[in-house]
Deep mutational scan, measured.
Amino acid sequence: DTINITLPDGKTLTLTVTPEFTVKELAEEIARRLGLSPEDIKDTHNGKTLDPSLTLAEYGITPGSTITLEIK
């Protein structure tokens, strides 16, 4: 299953994830792909900052969802 990550420059990154991924694991994968530190990444969905300890499923993030990435 894939989700879309909207980057600060407007580009989109597509990642393969499972509903059990935590937001922290997602940030780590994004950081790895972009050459950043996971601590520099802030993920938001529907205007809410995502708690790193919760899973994508707990936020109702499903395949095809879009998450907005902010760099701290």
Rank of each mutant, 00 (worst) to 15 (best):
D1C: 15
D1V: 15
D1L: 15
T2P: 04
T2L: 09
I3D: 00
N4L: 11
N4S: 10
N4I: 08
N4V: 09
N4F: 11
N4H: 11
I5F: 05
I5Y: 01
T6L: 15
T6H: 14
T6D: 08
P8Y: 06
P8F: 06
D9I: 02
D9Q: 04
D9M: 03
G10I: 01
G10P: 00
K11E: 10
T12A: 06
T12W: 09
L13E: 04
L13M: 12
L13A: 03
L13C: 06
T14E: 08
T14W: 07
T14K: 11
T14Q: 10
L15H: 01
L15K: 00
L15V: 14
L15Q: 02
T16G: 08
T16I: 10
T16H: 13
V17H: 03
V17E: 00
T18S: 10
T18C: 05
P19W: 05
P19F: 05
P19R: 05
P19G: 04
P19Y: 04
E20L: 12
E20T: 13
E20I: 09
F21W: 14
F21P: 00
F21L: 13
T22Y: 02
V23R: 01
V23E: 00
V23L: 12
V23A: 02
K24G: 15
K24H: 09
K24W: 14
E25D: 14
L26V: 05
L26R: 00
L26Y: 04
L26C: 03
A27V: 15
A27Q: 13
E28D: 10
E28L: 08
E29R: 03
E29S: 05
I30M: 05
I30R: 00
A31V: 05
A31N: 03
A31P: 00
A31Q: 05
R32F: 10
R32Y: 10
R33K: 09
R33L: 11
R33H: 14
R33S: 07
L34D: 00
L34G: 03
L34F: 10
G35H: 08
G35D: 08
G35L: 04
G35Q: 07
L36V: 14
L36Y: 10
S37K: 13
S37Y: 13
P38W: 14
P38V: 15
P38H: 08
E39N: 13
D40A: 12
D40M: 12
D40P: 12
I41P: 01
I41F: 11
I41L: 13
I41Q: 02
K42Q: 11
D43M: 15
D43Y: 15
D43I: 15
D43G: 15
T44K: 12
H45R: 05
H45M: 14
H45F: 15
N46W: 15
N46P: 07
N46S: 14
N46F: 15
K48N: 14
K48V: 15
K48A: 14
T49W: 15
T49C: 13
T49A: 09
T49L: 14
T49V: 15
T49I: 13
D51W: 04
D51S: 04
D51L: 04
P52L: 13
P52I: 09
P52E: 11
P52K: 07
S53M: 11
S53C: 08
S53E: 10
S53V: 05
S53D: 09
L54C: 10
T55P: 06
T55G: 02
T55V: 03
T55W: 01
T55M: 04
T55E: 02
T55S: 06
L56H: 00
L56M: 04
L56C: 04
A57S: 09
A57K: 12
A57H: 09
A57Q: 10
E58R: 01
E58P: 00
Y59E: 06
Y59R: 01
Y59D: 02
G60P: 01
G60M: 03
G60A: 03
T62H: 13
P63E: 07
P63G: 09
P63I: 05
P63L: 06
P63K: 03
P63A: 12
G64H: 04
G64F: 03
S65E: 05
S65G: 05
S65Q: 08
S65A: 11
S65R: 02
I67S: 01
T68K: 13
T68V: 13
T68W: 13
L69Y: 03
L69R: 00
L69T: 04
L69F: 06
E70D: 09
E70I: 11
I71F: 12
I71H: 06
I71M: 09
K72R: 13
